[in-house]
Amino acid sequence: MSSDSKLFKDALGELGDVKPLVQERRVTLRKADEPSERMVRERRAAATRRTARDMNPLSGEYIELVAPWDPIEFKRDGVQNGVYRNLRLGKYKIDARLDLHRHSVEMARSAVVEFVRDCVEADVRCALITHGKGEGRKQPALLKSCIKHWLPQLDAVLAFHSAQKQHGGMGATYVLLRKSERKRLENLERHQRRF
């Protein structure tokens, strides 16, 4: 016995009635060698969904359905009432159009993201998305409902409203887009020259 352990035992003996602690039984946990086949499939599916979501910012979660003849509308804070009224009345020149007829929901979602991105790059301020009313379909106004749900999720979209009759009526939507940084600076310079 080493001198340290002898000293320790002598010190315990001076304390009187010392009992060893009762040790609880321990269970040794083993990690599974390989994840199950189901677990691997679930992980791959989750990674695929995450990748698709990163590429396309529009959510595919629950979408509240609208009726085929109901107007859809949205206006971000800061958009002037007169600007929004002119959009509603179809007074702005339509610089770009997207037709979603015969698109599946997934195809439409990708098309909308790409369309808005292209519009911003091309300095388009007012665009028209034709989605149809979906009358007589199993799920009426599905794409229209999706448009109503998706457009507010895109930062470049300032406002939207169902179109006037001559532009497609309740089967189309006017979209007001944010100015590109280049266009904003041009306007700022133009207005500063006036003073």
Rank of each mutant, 00 (worst) to 15 (best):
I129R: 04
R102V: 04
L89M: 12
Y84Q: 04
Y92R: 06
I94G: 00
I94T: 09
S104N: 02
K93L: 10
L143I: 12
A108I: 04
R125V: 06
M107N: 07
D99T: 07
L100C: 07
R125Q: 11
L87N: 12
H131R: 12
R102F: 13
V105N: 13
H131M: 05
L143R: 08
I94H: 06
H101D: 07
Q139D: 11
V79F: 02
S104I: 04
L100G: 10
S110R: 12
L100M: 08
V83P: 02
C126F: 11
H103Q: 12
K144R: 15
H131S: 09
R109Y: 02
A127L: 07
I94C: 00
A127I: 10
N81P: 00
I129T: 08
C126M: 07
N81A: 15
R97D: 06
Q80K: 14
H103N: 13
G136W: 03
H101I: 04
R137E: 14
V113D: 05
E135R: 14
R88A: 13
V112T: 09
R102Q: 11
D118A: 10
K93N: 02
R137Q: 13
E121N: 05
S110F: 05
L98S: 04
D118N: 13
S104R: 11
Y92F: 15
C119R: 08
A111E: 02
A122P: 02
E121F: 12
L100E: 10
G78T: 07
N81T: 12
E121V: 04
D95A: 15
Q80A: 13
R125E: 14
D77S: 14
S104G: 05
G136M: 04
K138G: 03
R117F: 09
V112W: 03
V113P: 00
H101V: 06
V112C: 05
A127C: 02
Y84M: 07
R125T: 13
Q139C: 04
Y84F: 15
R85Q: 13
M107W: 01
L89Y: 03
R125C: 03
V113E: 00
